Simulated scan of single mutants.
Amino acid sequence: MPQKPKRFNAYQIDLHYLDTSTRNQTDAIMWDAAIVSELWAEIFTLAVEQRTRRYNDSWLMYLDYFEEDEHYIFGRFLSAEYGTTGELLHADQLTLRPNPKLVREGETEATYFLIKKVDGLLLLQSNIRLNRPRFEEYIETLGAEVIRRRNLTFIQICTLLENNFFESIRQLNTVHKIEIEVSKTEIAADENEAVRALQNDVEEISATDVKLEFEAKYQRSGLKGVLPLVKKYKDQQGVTKIVVRGKLAGAEKVIKLDDSQEQYRRRVEVDTNNQPMLTSVENVLKEVANQRRKLRE
């Protein structure tokens, strides 16, 4: 079978709950593979229409495959973009013909994921549409009953970063600007207030995303506030991009969160439509997860 390189991004799944062991209830984090297994199993028992999420009547996604064993949860989403039927162009002859696809039809795209039960490591195939916020929204929305029944407040998908991201920020001589991009997603009650406000603005102007920019008044002394700010927004639902702009040794320096994410490029077998083959992806992801150090000791 032919092979193609695919990229898989690494995340950590955190289960949030209210800790009532003290006088004041506080937010706490735990990991319980049984809860996550229960959540995915219940989602997969839903009819296809019920487990399908639609966006702007032009793109949809749904859980298409799910399995688990003693150590891993493995699944596949199918997604499709529809609403356009432009003419088809032949790559060699440069001839045009009508597209036989109907406006309400779309070509399927497979996106795979694997969860390591021992520590909550999530490996998610890179997909510009089916990204971390959409994945998180999907399980929180369709798994709402399990979240309530298990006394959780919410589930958070945390981006795992290489060490050089925050270290690169620390090394800057000055910081000029921090840019945070927010996309329109369903708003959770416990989200950051600024993110909620931005998402409301996005809705008002019928936009798809908006940028929040922080300008440094005192560029050198303002450095001490950069890391807490970035950490505060890093995994907020709806935040899709963080960029820090500054100077290092007199030269302009741009540090992007996406460039520092922990990710794995692996070659997997593909079919005639260049879609990854299920068994090949499963074997590759299990190998990666097995070799990676544990997230929680």
Rank of each mutant, 00 (worst) to 15 (best):
W31M: 00
D32V: 08
I35H: 02
V36D: 05
A41S: 13
E42L: 10
E42V: 15
F44P: 07
F44G: 05
T45M: 15
T45W: 14
T45A: 12
A47L: 08
V48F: 10
E49G: 14
Q50F: 15
R54P: 13
L60N: 06
L60F: 05
L60R: 12
L60S: 14
Y62H: 12
L63V: 03
L63K: 08
Y65D: 02
F66H: 07
D69M: 00
H71F: 01
Y72L: 04
F74K: 06
F74A: 08
G75R: 12
R76T: 05
F77Y: 01
E81Q: 09
G83D: 07
T85Q: 14
G86Y: 04
E87P: 11
T95C: 08
R97T: 01
K101A: 09
K101T: 01
L102P: 09
L102C: 07
E107M: 09
E109H: 13
E109W: 10
T111Q: 09
F113I: 08
I115Q: 05
I115R: 06
K116F: 04
V118L: 02
V118E: 06
L121G: 02
L121R: 07
L122T: 02
L123N: 09
L124P: 01
Q125T: 07
N127Y: 01
I128P: 12
N131G: 06
E136A: 11
E137K: 03
E137D: 13
Y138A: 09
I139Q: 13
I139F: 13
L142S: 11
R149C: 08
R150P: 10
R150E: 03
N151M: 14
N151G: 11
F154Q: 10
I155C: 12
C158A: 12
C158W: 00
E162K: 02
Q171G: 11
